[in-house]
Simulated assay, not measured.
Amino acid sequence: MTARILIVDDQPDIRKLISLTLQHLEDAELHEADNGGDGWRMAKDLKPDLMLLDVMMPGELDGYQVCTKIKQDPELAAHTKVILLTARAQQEDLDAGARAGSDAYLTKAFSPLKLLDTVDEMLGRME
């Protein structure tokens, strides 16, 4: 079964790095959005299995808000895992991610291997 993965980050270089890292996954369909509002709208349409979601984005919704909306939506909450991505690694940031309902939290700059391991874990692909 193909896993739908939605990458939401306002930084094109970060989106590209994540896409290049994940393109080697078999049976993964990658989608991208460059802001929280578009990410939320795409999530409602795509119903992704996994979202990689930047916390700090300009515009109508930040990553915490999008995560909260995903986890409160009955159609999405049941099967969409959310990995929050951020440069902020203070305890209050981690707590905010937990309150928003995130399934995992990666701090930038994360290694591609750590990203792949976390994605595999979220998609239930760990051996």
Rank of each mutant, 00 (worst) to 15 (best):
A33P: 00
E32W: 07
G59L: 02
A3D: 13
D95C: 07
K71W: 06
Y64G: 01
P112W: 07
L6W: 03
T21L: 10
L6A: 11
L115V: 00
L106C: 13
S111L: 09
E26W: 04
Q11A: 14
K44W: 06
I5S: 02
L50V: 03
D34N: 09
A89W: 04
P12Y: 15
D34Y: 03
E121Q: 10
A78C: 12
M122F: 04
K71R: 10
M1D: 07
Q91S: 14
T68F: 10
V66C: 04
V66S: 03
E127K: 01
H79V: 05
A89I: 05
L22S: 01
T107H: 08
R15E: 08
T68I: 03
K108E: 15
E32F: 09
D9H: 01
K71V: 08
I5M: 02
T118G: 04
S102H: 03
P112A: 05
A78E: 06
K44C: 11
K47R: 08
V119A: 03
R15Q: 10
T68H: 13
D13N: 12
G59T: 03
G101P: 00
A78T: 14
K108T: 15
Q11I: 15
M56F: 08
S102L: 01
H79I: 04
K16F: 08
G59Q: 03
T2K: 10
D120L: 14
L6V: 04
R99N: 07
W40H: 05
L17G: 10
D73W: 07
V8L: 08
T107I: 15
W40T: 08
L17Y: 09
L61V: 08
E92D: 12
K71L: 05
Q90N: 07
R99Y: 09
K108H: 10
Q23S: 15
K69V: 01
D103S: 11
K81W: 01
A100W: 06
Q90W: 06
Q23N: 14
M56T: 13
T68C: 12
A28D: 05
A89F: 07
L22G: 01
R41I: 10
E92A: 12
M57Y: 04
D38V: 15
P112K: 04
K47N: 09
